[in-house]
Write a protein that binds this DNA or RNA. Structure first.
Length: 266
DNA sequence: TTCCATGTTCCGCA
DNA sequence: TTGCGGAACATGGA
């Protein structure tokens, strides 16, 4: 599930639950979710700390600690957070559990173990090392900067949108949504887009992600006319009623409306 | 049982 | 050299 809007929901969840409590200790149930860090190092840098705030960059969520460091969380394809009393059972597939001195705990769930976590000294340095581009909703990412970063690509517009080093936060589902609302076919090559296409794409990207971040990515909350949630052959295009098409684009299953979205070679 | 999944990384190729 | 597409990864659900 977790793309930018979902992680924005996790960020709000973390802020509403786990701030300003002392971390008494942590449990790591599977070290495979660690991102180049030893279990001992992780535990040592968490113990005794408090979470001051939560920040997001792309699909990464950072719990900022009172030590100045931050616990980075990436949810992979199937991750979430669960905050509850310590006496309640850990949820299935809980990989990291933080026990607070308040008697509550925060569990990081990663079903398919594709999520990653580690304590980082500095978020900016970490992001740079991983070649993470600016967050897709970054205030400083204006239309011109977006166009500059997107230009000169040879592949499909969908693969460019999902490329985290160009702009961070967009995955398979939201790239489909953005392209649908922008009227662009996911297979359209980047070098066939003109300035107006890119300008429109930027506008739509910001609108879609801002709106979706507000409802935390829950498809059931999506406004009428969105593609989100209707990713199957059974559901018609929410705008024109035409049957949706799907196919592999940039290594993933894309859905689009053949009537509303221009042909790739147009 | 087989296939597919909302993510990232690595490899081979152009 | 750079960038792109595809495979691999791990696990569970349809």
């Amino acid at each position: 599930m977790p793309e930018l809007p979902d992680v924005a929901g996790f960020q709000r969840y973390l802020q509403a639950t786990a701030l300003h409590q002392r971390i008494r200790g942590s449990h790591l149930t599977d070290r495979r979710i660690l991102d180049h860090q030893s279990p001992q190092m992780l535990a040592r840098r968490l113990k005794g700390r408090k979470i001051d705030s939560a920040r997001r960059r792309g699909k990464w969520l950072f719990a900022e600690l009172d030590s100045g460091e931050a616990l980075g969380l990436h949810f992979g394809m199937s991750g979430e957070l669960d905050y509850a009393a310590q006496k309640s059972d850990w949820p299935d597939h809980a990989r990291l559990i933080l026990d607070f001195d308040s008697g509550y705990r925060l569990a990081v769930i990663s079903r398919r173990l594709l999520g990653r976590t580690r304590v980082v000294e500095d978020i900016g340095t970490f992001a740079a090392r991983r070649e993470l581009g600016p967050d897709a909703l970054d205030e400083d990412l204006g239309r011109e900067a977006f166009q500059r970063r997107m230009q000169g690509r040879r592949g499909s517009v969908k693969s460019a949108l999902m490329n985290q080093s160009i702009v961070a936060g967009i995955g398979n589902v939201y790239s489909d949504e953005i392209l649908f609302q922008a009227g662009l076919h996911p297979r359209r090559r980047m070098d066939r887009l003109d300035g107006e296409d890119l300008s429109n794409l930027y506008r739509v990207m910001r609108r879609v992600l801002r709106t979706a971040a507000r409802f935390g990515g829950d498809a059931r909350e999506a406004p009428a006319g969105w593609l989100l949630g209707g990713r199957s052959a059974d559901t018609p295009c929410p705008r024109c009623g035409h049957e949706l098409e799907s196919g592999t684009v940039a290594g993933r299953t894309a859905w689009w409306c053949p009537r509303c979205q221009q042909r790739p070679d147009d």
